[in-house]
Every structure is written in C-alpha cells, then in structure tokens.
Write a protein that binds this DNA or RNA. Structure first.
Lengths: 144, 144
DNA sequence: ATTTCTGCAAAGGGTTTGCACGTAT
DNA sequence: ATACGTGCAAACCCTTTGCAGAAAT
C-alpha cells in the first residue's frame, strides 16, 4: 500500500489529516525497521519540533483503529512499532545486533497445523518473532 | 523437571530458600497456565497474606537468572508468566477466552528455514505465540 | 460552524529501589 | 556471624487524560 492509500483510508474513516498526523505516519512509513517510541518522537520532531509525545500516543490509537499498526514486543521488554501494509500476514527477522527487521511471509508448516488441528484448537492468530544476526552483522562479528 | 529439582537449582546457584520464595515459585509451578502478576500475587497471598508485590518482582529476576521463567506478551499488552521446565523448546496454544495455555513442541517448517537461509540470516532464537479458542471454549461459544 | 485534534500539564498505573529489619545458611 | 531477602513507602517512568485553544472539514 503506498502512502496516499494510507492517507485515503485515514480520511475515509472520518479522521482529519493534520500536519502532525501526516508527519507521524510518514515517519513510520519511511522507516525500514520497527522503531521505538523514542525513535518515533525524534523522527517526528525532526520535521516539526513542536510535536508532543501525547499526540503520537493518540495517533497510535488511530493507526490501530485502521488496522495498520503492528506492535512488536521483543524479549527485552521494549516495544517497537511498524506499519502493517502487507496483504499477507508476515513476520520479522530481527537482527540482535543492528536492530534491522525484515519482513518475511508467513508459512506455518502443514505438520504444525496438523498438530494444532489434532488438539481441536481453533487458531485465530499468531505471533512469531525471529531473532538472530543479519548477513552484514554476521560478517562483522566473524571479523573479530 | 520436578519441584525439588527447581529448588536444588535455586540453592546451587547461591540463592536462599525463603518461605516467600518457595510459595512464589510453587504458585507458578502448580498453575496449569501462564498467569498475570495480579493472579500470581493472589495465589501467593493465599498461602502467606503478608507477601509483598515487590518480593514477587524481585523473584522474577531470580527465576530469569535461573533461566526458568517464560514471559508471554499477548497482543492485549498484558504480561503473563510461566515456568519453562521443558527440555524441548516449545510454544503455547493460548485460549483467548479461558486463558488456558497448552505447550506444543516446536516445528518451524523446512520451507520456512529455507526462506531464512536464503536471506543468509543467522537465526538464533524465536518466539511463537498462537492464539485461538480451545476445544471447550469453542463449544461454549457455539452454543450461543 | 462544527467537529476533531493538539499541546500542555497533571494524573495514573505498573515496576523498581533505598532502607532498616528479618531470616537462611 | 554474615550475607542475602523482605516489607514498606517513596521514587520512577511510560502512558493516559482533562482542558482550553487551534486546525481541518
């Protein structure tokens, strides 16, 4: 989904397009990885120093309402945010060193689904986070 | 791992076995599902009404140090705790209605691993949470 | 004109911490 | 005897909220 589609969805849902809102969403949209609240604030203040933290928090609600926000909660108890624009459900390969996150398409295995089915469990949603080292960081670490 | 093994591990790691600590760990040990801090406190107060919240929080650190604690962070932003006693890496089928959690063994599919390998990503660990309705709750919901 | 949105500051709620006392070893 | 652990209360920090003014429709 391109940025204009996001804005259209926003407007069509009855939300107003303010300067702050645009900047807040843009920051997430252009980030290549999930970001923390602190990073999000810095990115927005870069474009409009007057933006208040609470405005971002309030826009989290908006993005959640639109179904566009993905909250990632790593094992380190931090919270990171990213836009969920993919039509297919996806997951992230998260680098433990540089923090870069790359989306990959979901594919729970057939055997996995079979195990769940056998337990007569009605699976609605799932959450998968994969941690390791990206190619670049792996190479860097090897050098040492 | 049975309860005495947990206690042995605790002692062998240099921690003292206090009445509170025993009760706190026992509560988790005997729960058949991951519990919230509130539930944990109630379970411990049941055995020793004087136990303080901060004591549980401090014992979380101990259990994490021992590698025995599993923190589950559902999409609803809550945090639940459970002991991780299985030797095999496992995941939970978590019921969205009754909260019951059942461990299942891990099996990332071969295709999944292939995708990751192709990206030359060095996978270290992963975290999978599966949400839905258990058989019983599914039946209950059908009745309505 | 009307409704929604924002900045500000204060309140809230879960978690952590300092300290003096208590307990396990 | 000593080091570790606990209860209590205060401190912390992130997030939420009430309000009055500002901006979008």
């Amino acid at each position: 989904m391109d940025f204009n589609k996001v804005i259209d969805l926003l407007k069509n849902s009855g939300y107003k397009l303010t300067n702050q809102r645009k900047i807040i969403i843009e920051a997430l949209y252009h980030s290549d990885k999930p970001i923390s609240m602190e990073e999000w604030l810095l990115l927005t203040k870069d474009k409009n120093p007057g933006i208040n933290l609470s405005t971002i928090y309030r826009n989290i609600d908006v993005l959640e309402d639109l179904g566009l926000l993905e909250k990632i909660r790593p094992k380190d108890d931090s919270i990171k945010y990213t836009l969920n624009l993919m039509e297919n459900h996806s997951h992230f390969l998260i680098c433990k060193r540089c923090g870069k996150a790359e989306a990959i398409e979901c594919c729970l295995s057939k055997e996995f689904k079979k195990v769940i089915e056998d337990k007569e469990f009605d699976l609605i949603e799932h959450n998968l986070e994969l941690y390791g080292y990206c190619k670049e960081c792996h190479n860097e670490l090897d050098k040492k």
